[in-house]
Amino acid sequence: MNIDSIHNGVVIDHITAGHCFDLYEMLHLGELDYPVALIKNVESKKMGRKDIIKVDADIELNLDVIGYAEPGATVNIIKDEKLVEKKVLELPEKLTNVIKCKNPRCITSTEQELPHIFKLTDRENKVYRCAYCETKAQEN
């Protein structure tokens, strides 16, 4: 299968096999008018199988979303068909408007304009807590 190499854009590599569509949704890539390729179940020495997303556009993606959803993923920035930057993502310390607090007693449930902020409180177990009410984030 051939996927054209991209000229200027972003390649998200080392996505857990089968997770590329979830990440596609979380990054709202469906709203873009640029070529986007989702590649599933690619062989990987490191991971056995992995997914890849290629976006053929010079856009900034929300790295916090990628770091949260796929810690360990690699983001490659391509300019003029050359790799100019490579970032291995970790769980971000803080998430703003990536996930929502589901605690009905949280102030964010009534004051809609407030950003939903979560802080990483346990990296090992991937625990995020709401900055307002400290309720643990539920896995989406």
């Binding site: 007693r105 949280c106 102030i107 449930s109 009534t110 004051e111 900055a131 307002y132 009410c133 309720t135």
Partner: peptide
């Protein structure tokens, strides 16, 4: 004092 959690933080 406020009934909503996190109100004082806001």
């Amino acid at each position: 004092r406020h009934p909503k959690e996190g109100a004082a933080f806001v």
